[in-house]
Amino acid sequence: MKEEFNIISNLIEENTRVLDVGCGNGDLMKFLQENKTKDIRGLEISKEKVQNCLSKGLTVIEGNAESDLKQFPKSSFDYVILSQTLQAFLNPELVINELLKVGKKVIVTIPNFGYWRVRLQLLFKGTMPVTENLPHEWYNTPNLHMCTIKDFYNFCSSKNIKIFKSIALKKSRISEINKSNLNYKNLDSHLGIFLIES
């Protein structure tokens, strides 16, 4: 988690306006508030988590990204963050479009379904993968649309979404993703982090 927070924090300029979509208990918000910017908001669907955030004094709205991002004006945030949540939406494409409208820049992180440990489970065990990063069983997972680093990379190019920066994370090792190492990073990373713009 800490590594991901650091990478996200490094992608953000100081004293900018940030929205964390699916902010959970507000750990990333708190981290950014201490390190980068005071002007940070959150959107979260779980009542309990919203209450936890508010208890910490974080400005969070209870709501659903798929229906409630609309209410924010165009480009009203310098950065919108979607941390490991894209796969849980009914319509990820719609959410990405909404994020790109609301934020001047968007940071998306995705648990990589192309990671070799994930692939091996399906290949050798013949069961849906369960890993540290993807701890759910097939019957109770909130993840509806799993994708790989390569899937997201290709999605961006097919939709003419500009990728400013793409970073791969394996344990605590950080590396850049580019066109030539895409297949390798897709195999050897558990998390992909993308800074994009419409």
Binding site: R41, K47, V50, Q51, L54, L58, T59, V60, I61, E62, G63, Q71, F72, P73, S76
Partner: peptide
């Protein structure tokens, strides 16, 4: 909340069970 969000005001919201 929507009216406040649409002008970028600083607003938090929760519905209590």
């Amino acid at each position: 909340v929507i009216a406040l969000n649409s002008i970028g005001a600083d607003v938090g919201f929760v519905e209590i069970e």
